[in-house]
Design a protein around this nucleic acid. Structure first.
Lengths: 248, 248
DNA sequence: TCACATTTTGACCGTCGGTCAAATAATTCT
DNA sequence: AGAATTATTTGACCGACGGTCAAAATGTGA
């Protein structure tokens, strides 16, 4: 007998295709309306299946949303890893990751808020174990991309080993990045801080932390404007979000 | 006739007392269980009133939670303003606010997650206009406390006016602080970064940003350990959370 | 074509936030 | 004091939603 009957294979393919369809529509609803303002019935209608069928793919609404978030996080990790291979000094490569994160945020503007929602215990425990692990895995990829550059920067002498450890430095960059992406979305803060471009403050704050870490070369001893042009050209040639960052 | 009948006054007092009671129990439930894992019936039982009575005080569950969050934010603003009057150089006073924020976070460990929840549109629009404004007002107090010190630091020459404006610097400090408080609560990140003390990384990250802003005196040209002891002694003599920060 | 296995469906359930007419309590009037 | 009036409290009830499962529909193999 053959290993797997062809009809089984076809079923498998159809199942996976349907899962993709569900995820795609769930992503759309999540971006358009947030978490509360749509329900599973509505999603079922959108994908032309019944509610019961949705629950063959996901154990709960939270499980489905976690899947969407993890897909986004995987995109982020992919961008981070690609950016970390940028040719240049360690701080330039860190900068490339900063751009990658902004590129990601431009594509998934609601991502960081959704991510914060995930962290509440009641949400997390309604998701399946498999999807929780998948999310942790993609998160670890992002962490490693940053951490590896920092370890290398310390190895080659661009970044002092004192007073901050590689882990402290990584944690600081992660914190300032997430914090900035969240704060830049706050209308009140945008007014108070006079922010128009949403991405600029994120990278500006990253610069401050890198300078604070004494990561060579400092902002005022190197032409990072050239680096930035190279990053955009080599890593994000198709992105349209960097125009105002360079003054139109 | 008298301006207001005494029974009216008594009613008023009782009404306010009951509102306090409701808020107190809601705060407890929120800290113990988060947002989802309790309902209005349960709260009504806890305060020994019926559900209908709760809705004479708050337009919705979200409105009530916003009130709790704003109370916490007011505490934060009070601590910030007190800390900003600390005697010392501008960066020492900024440091005092950093301690104030950690003191606050120790008292309200769930605060920043609740705050993130508030920001989702569906939550915000279910709250009453009055409470939204109250929340914005307390948020502005926190912003101003930081911003004033930064403006003064620029005026006295402790902080260069270039390349960052006072608003950019304030935004950076706010972002790194909120981001750090959020990230330090993540179990995965705590493991990856090897964090045991929850407050230390927050202030470490603030130090990085201040150094990155070139805020004099730098970390390595001043004995901030002395400042820290003074801050704890003068501003938080009763707090117990700083022991491990100083190595037991 | 029929028997059997698999998949899909939507009526149904429990929960919860929120409402409101009726019950109860407080106050005022005579 | 007691009736009349006003104010307050209550909890049965509603609609919405996430999630379930027996029955219907569809697919499979002989």
């Amino acid at each position: 007998m053959s290993a797997v009957s062809p009809s089984i294979q076809r079923k498998e393919r159809e199942f996976l295709a349907r899962e993709e369809l569900i995820i795609t529509h769930a992503r759309r609803l999540l971006l358009e309306k947030g978490f509360q303002a749509w329900n599973m019935e509505e999603l079922a209608g959108a994908v032309q299946y019944s509610k019961g069928t949705l629950y063959q793919h996901f154990t709960s609404k939270e499980d489905l949303v976690l899947e969407v978030a993890t897909d986004a996080l995987k995109q982020r990790a992919d961008l981070f890893e690609r950016a970390s291979r940028f040719q240049g000094r360690t701080r330039e490569r860190c900068r490339a990751i900063g751009f990658a994160c902004c590129e990601f945020a431009a594509n998934c503007p609601e991502y960081f808020h959704i991510e914060m929602m995930l962290k509440s215990a009641s949400f997390w425990e309604k998701a399946s174990e498999a999807r929780r692990q998948a999310h942790a895995f993609q998160g670890a990829r992002c962490w490693r991309a940053v951490n590896h550059i920092i370890v290398e920067a310390m190895a080659v002498g661009d970044l002092p080993r004192e007073p901050y450890s590689a882990e402290q430095a990584t944690f600081a960059l992660v914190s300032v990045t997430v914090g900035s992406h969240l704060m830049v979305q706050e209308p009140h803060l945008r007014v108070q801080a006079g922010i128009t471009d949403e991405m600029m403050p994120v990278r500006v704050n990253q610069d401050m932390v890198c300078d604070g870490l004494k990561w060579r070369p400092f902002l005022n001893e190197f032409d990072y404007a050239e680096t930035d042009k190279r990053i955009v050209k080599e890593l994000f040639p198709n992105a349209v979000n960097w125009h105002q960052t360079f003054g139109g």
